[in-house]
Simulated assay, not measured.
Amino acid sequence: MLTADQAREAVARCWGSVLEVFPDDRWERPTRCAGWSLLDLTRHAAWGTSMEADALRRSRSGEAGSGVGTEPSGGRDGVEPALRASVAALVGELDRAAELGDAVEIPFGAVPSPFALQVFTMEAGVHADDVLAAMGRDEALGADVVTATSVVLAAVLPVLAAEVPAEGTVVGLTGPTVDLRFGVVDATWQAVDAAPTVSVRGSSDTAVLRFALGRTGVDDPALDVDEGARAFKAWFPGP
Rank of each mutant, 00 (worst) to 15 (best):
A155W: 04
F120W: 14
F120A: 06
H127T: 02
V156T: 11
L117I: 05
V164P: 05
G136C: 09
A140K: 12
A155G: 11
G142I: 08
A162V: 01
A154C: 10
V131F: 12
A133K: 09
A128K: 07
A128T: 06
D129S: 09
P158S: 02
V126W: 07
S150C: 08
L157R: 04
A148L: 04
L117W: 11
V164L: 11
P158Y: 03
V151N: 00
F120P: 01
V156D: 04
V152K: 13
V151A: 09
P165L: 10
M122E: 07
G136K: 11
T149F: 13
M135G: 14
M135P: 02
A161W: 03
V156W: 04
D129I: 03
T121P: 03
V119M: 08
A116R: 08
L132K: 03
H127M: 03
A124H: 10
G142D: 13
V152F: 15
V119F: 02
V159M: 07
A143M: 01
P165E: 02
R137M: 05
T147D: 15
V151R: 04
H127E: 10
L157Y: 00
Q118K: 01
A154P: 08
V156Y: 09
V145H: 09
L157C: 06
T121H: 07
E139W: 11
V151K: 03
E163A: 14
T149E: 08
A148I: 08
L157T: 01
D129P: 00
D138E: 13
A161I: 00
Q118H: 07
V152T: 12
A140E: 15
L153H: 04
L117G: 03
A161T: 09
G125S: 03
A116I: 02
R137V: 11
A134G: 15
A124P: 07
A148V: 02
L157E: 05
V159K: 15
L117E: 08
V156C: 00
V152W: 14
V145A: 12
V131T: 07
A161N: 12
V156N: 00
V159R: 14
V126C: 10
G136E: 13
G142H: 07
L132N: 01
V146T: 06
V119T: 09
L160R: 14
V119E: 08
A155C: 06
A155P: 00
V146G: 09
V119A: 06
L141I: 12
L132G: 02
A148R: 04
R137Y: 00
P158K: 02
Q118N: 13
L117C: 03
A148F: 07
A155F: 05
V131A: 13
G136A: 06
L132H: 06
A133C: 09
D138T: 14
G136Y: 06
L132R: 12
V145F: 06
A140P: 10
V126I: 15
P165Y: 05
A124F: 04
T121F: 08
E163T: 11
T147S: 15
D129C: 01
A143V: 11
L160Q: 10
A143P: 05
T149P: 12
A155E: 15
L157K: 04
D138V: 10
L160V: 08
L153P: 05
D144I: 06
V164D: 05
S150R: 03
A161D: 11
